[in-house]
């Protein structure tokens, strides 16, 4: 029953066991529901960061990190490499979930390990970008653009780190216990989380490496 249909129903008129919830009353669906809400919460948080970021870009002291050849993020190669790492992790999880039941156990474990590795490579790659920025004198407090770069990539990294921890537990379980539905479900939930973090990273990548003109256009579009 659609939500609207439910909201206009007249509950005082019927006395029966209508609309059994046997389908909905399900622990698997519950986990997916919780994940969706969690992603909604994270999205709201980053959306608010984006809005504050865009409005802060319009202040005179804001100096974008890309756009001119001498700016540190004009050369996006390291960030593209990091993107490839997190993208690879996402693709592996997609393949793993699609073929989970048909894959031999050692392959499942190897693919999980590979996901973990490429995610860790992404995180260390991000740290390298941080180091590089600091080496060039772009510290956290030097400019709001830098502050936002460290803050947003740091928070994104923390979310990925949480996923890495959960996936590590799953990998340990896969190594120690027989393959079960529970594991495949957990990997499937992780897959959705990784896809989400990939998407989030792509938005961050675009925003944090945009030029002053692009920020101006976005701000105008948003009416800021």
């Amino acid at each position: 029953m659609s939500v609207i249909k439910q909201l206009v129903s007249k509950p005082w008129e019927s006395v029966d066991t209508q609309t059994s919830l046997s389908e909905a009353n399900d622990i698997t669906l519950a986990r997916y529901t919780a994940l969706k809400w969690l992603l909604a919460v994270i999205s709201v948080m980053f959306m608010l960061f984006f809005i504050t970021f865009i409005s802060r870009t319009q202040f005179t002291d804001f100096q974008a990190l890309a756009g001119e050849p001498w700016l540190p993020l004009s050369d996006k190669t390291p960030l593209w490499i990091n993107t490839a790492y997190i993208g690879l992790a996402s693709i592996i999880l997609q393949i793993l979930c699609k073929r989970f039941s048909r894959l031999p156990r050692w392959k499942v474990n190897s693919l999980l390990l590979l996901t973990l590795l490429s995610s860790m490579l992404f995180l260390s790659g991000q740290l390298a970008v941080w180091n590089n920025l600091m080496a060039q004198g772009y510290y956290l407090q030097t400019n709001p653009a830098n502050s936002f770069f460290y803050l947003l990539t740091g928070l994104h990294g923390l979310h990925l780190l949480l996923g890495v921890l959960i996936l590590t537990v799953t990998l340990i379980q896969c190594l120690l216990k027989p393959v079960s539905d529970k594991m495949s479900r957990r990997i499937d939930l992780t897959r959705i989380y990784w896809h989400y973090l990939l998407l989030l990273w792509l938005v961050l990548f675009f925003l944090l490496t945009s030029s002053t003109e692009t920020f101006k256009a976005i701000a105008e579009f948003c009416g800021l």
């Binding site: 029953m1 939500v3 439910q6 909201l7 129903s9 007249k10 509950p11 029966d16 066991t17 209508q18 609309t19 059994s20 919830l21 046997s22 909905a24 009353n25 399900d26 622990i27 669906l29 519950a30 529901t33 919780a34 809400w37 969690l38 919460v41």
Partner: peptide, 24 residues
Amino acid sequence: FTMGGLNYVTTILQARTKGMTLMR
């Protein structure tokens, strides 16, 4: 709050007993 809140929303959406429609 987020940990608790995810629990409350999911429980209300997914763990209602038989016959407990939203409008009941």
